[in-house]
Design a protein around this nucleic acid. Sequence first.
DNA 1: ACAGGTTTGGAAACCGTTTTCCTTATCCTA
DNA 2: TAGGATAAGGAAAACGGTTTCCAAACCTGT
Lengths: 331, 331
Amino acid sequence: MTTIRDVAKRAGVAVSTVSKVINHYPNISEDTIRRVTEAIDELQFVPNAIASSLSSKQSGRIALILNPNTQTQAIDEITMRYMTGAVTRARELRMELLPVFFSMLEEKSVEEVETFLHSQGVGGLIICGMSKDDYVLQRLVAREHFKVVLVDVPISNASTSYVSVDQRAAQADVARKTILENQGPSKDVLYISGKQNGYVSEDRLQGMLDLARELEFNLSVHSGEFSEKKAREITLKYGEVNDIIVCASDLMAIGAMRALMDLDIFHPVCGFDGITLMGYAGKQMNTVRQNFHDIAAEAVDEVARLIGGEQGRAVIMPHELVRLEYMDIIV
Amino acid sequence: MTTIRDVAKRAGVAVSTVSKVINHYPNISEDTIRRVTEAIDELQFVPNAIASSLSSKQSGRIALILNPNTQTQAIDEITMRYMTGAVTRARELRMELLPVFFSMLEEKSVEEVETFLHSQGVGGLIICGMSKDDYVLQRLVAREHFKVVLVDVPISNASTSYVSVDQRAAQADVARKTILENQGPSKDVLYISGKQNGYVSEDRLQGMLDLARELEFNLSVHSGEFSEKKAREITLKYGEVNDIIVCASDLMAIGAMRALMDLDIFHPVCGFDGITLMGYAGKQMNTVRQNFHDIAAEAVDEVARLIGGEQGRAVIMPHELVRLEYMDIIV
DNA sequence: ACAGGTTTGGAAACCGTTTTCCTTATCCTA
DNA sequence: TAGGATAAGGAAAACGGTTTCCAAACCTGT
């Protein structure tokens, strides 16, 4: 393995000079830079990141904490978008990204993972897919050991940022569009909401309440807990007496749509997330596409900012209304 | 940060002794071990993995190279299973797992990623989802820089292992089951195969040829290239003149099934992979479940073995025949 | 009591960088 | 032309462990 010393010898300078060239320090003459650069090329020298981390106490490592519910494929798609977005951006910033799954963090072992991350020199965390009252999340944020960026959980302080779309507005937008498209006499709306304690659930619900006030329709709300099966059951029970069904997630929208098909009713349904699976529901549906890839990339940028010493803040990402159908999504 | 020197002072021994205790060296007295262990607990000492890597020249880092085709959600599910399996097992072995996506490896940048991995002290690679003649794969295997474990590509030599299910047998198994279940006069089988140059495709096709000989049916083969849309087109064209459709992947099976529904034909269809999406096809289907989670976990074990100095080998994982339907898969 | 072997523990070099001084050399300005 | 400011580059001490080698202490059996 060729080291910085080999380069120094080859270029006829001190190792410290080589280091300075590599790290673009000021006060190095053009000539020296050229000589060192040449030596680096000739020797095909690649700095040892481990030694660099040790010496500089900056590892450039961050952890991406995910909560892949292995039961539902919809979550897989979202989780993968987070992964690709974060990994790609991290590589661009020349950082290392360690994936950590929530299942490793169950109460008893969160401490173990914490010290593991510490021992690995991880300085920043990106946390996706946890509800705001989650014990693990609370703990990770509370100890100010890490800079953390939360996705979809609105906590921000000196060392914590969050990034999310405007859930409330987005939910109102997609529901408004769907309702206006299907004017008629339809004035009874069934809203299948998410989990009780989830922040996004609450915010989306608020969006629906806003809209009910705005458009003056009757709104009945049932909690589907983000479960396809639950949404199906709710629809089988209450689908017939309503005119339109708005769901707080695509997965639930699929459950609702399938239930309606079984009942031979054809009410419009809309969802939230913009996952591909929506194409398999059996009918075109409106939904709001969250760009999970970009959200995660933004989170990486944000954690880099925090590590760079900047203050935590809130980052709101744009959302987009789309309409998904089988023939459009297959490849 | 508390270091090994602090521990040494507290325990009244030399730093080398502390290191030996931590790494379970022989020839340390019970008494010394106890004193050191106590000091470690009292000081809440956690060894710095970076320093350890630098010193021992063993980083315990491996890279997981994935090929997430961002177009199809089916791939997301498989990729996520690989991820969770590998990440979980890596944590158990106290290794670090760096995810790398194929898209970062396009011809021009494979070299860059290679040196990046090197500089990060990565010693082992797990490569999933590439065909055996892929340039990147060839290159990564050829330079004997890394120990590599291939998933589903049968190359093994001194520093290369592979793990896969018995594709050929599995394809024959699921097709046999489906055909025998639907005896009748059905003797014309349409096989929608995978990509031409893919190893798994070829092997699965061999399995079908074996079975055609065994059960003496007419087999017509068309390449669906693992594309749902392609499988749909093939089925629209040839579905009617055959009695049973066997597909080399679940995704294609879904495409075929949907096409049959559009044609109002109800031939049996079977798939391969065992992904959840199969439940959304509209009808029960046979498929072979590959346990991607375990496959990836096994790959991590295997790369650890290789790094430990053992020889490359082939690892064949079990497969399982299953039948998937909507009501069974929703949660 | 002593030669020789075996435990046990310590000293110090080392891993490959970064970074902090510090020393020259060069350049203004009065 | 002296004097201080600035630019350029080097020496050496970190960073926090691991590992090699060596010495002391402890056993044996004779």
